[in-house]
Computed example of a mutant assay.
Amino acid sequence: MPMSYKARRRWSIILLLVWLPIYTIIAWVVLVSIPRQHIAIEFLMYAVAGILWALPFKNVFKGVGKPDPDG
Rank of each mutant, 00 (worst) to 15 (best):
R36H: 05
I13N: 05
K66P: 00
G65L: 15
I26N: 04
I25Q: 06
V18I: 15
N59A: 15
K58M: 09
P56Y: 09
K58A: 12
Q37C: 04
M3V: 07
G65I: 08
A27N: 07
A47F: 12
I51Q: 07
A54C: 04
S4N: 06
K66G: 04
W28L: 15
L52H: 00
V48R: 01
A54E: 01
T24C: 10
V32K: 11
A7E: 15
A40K: 02
V48T: 14
P2N: 11
I25D: 08
Y5T: 09
I26R: 04
L20A: 15
H38M: 04
A54H: 03
G65V: 04
A54N: 03
P69V: 08
W19Y: 15
A7P: 00
F61I: 03
M1V: 14
G63I: 02
F61K: 04
Y5I: 07
V30A: 13
S4L: 10
M1R: 14
K66C: 03
A40G: 07
K62L: 11
L55S: 05
L20I: 12
Q37E: 13
L55E: 05
M3A: 13
G50A: 04
F43D: 05
L31M: 05
M45R: 12
W11H: 13
M45T: 02
A40M: 06
G63A: 03
D70A: 12
I14M: 07
I13M: 13
L31I: 03
Y5A: 08
W53I: 14
V32I: 06
L55C: 01
R9P: 00
R8A: 05
K6G: 09
W28Y: 15
R8F: 03
G71N: 11
F57A: 09
L31F: 04
K58Q: 08
W53P: 08
P35C: 05
L15H: 06
F43Q: 06
I26S: 07
A27Y: 03
T24L: 13
Q37L: 09
G65Y: 06
I14H: 06
A49C: 07
S33H: 00
M45L: 15
S12L: 07
D70E: 14
P56T: 11
W28T: 15
L31G: 02
A49S: 11
A47E: 02
R10I: 12
L16T: 14
I39H: 11
D68E: 13
M45G: 02
S33Y: 02
Q37I: 01
P2F: 13
P2I: 04
L52Q: 02
L52P: 00
L55H: 02
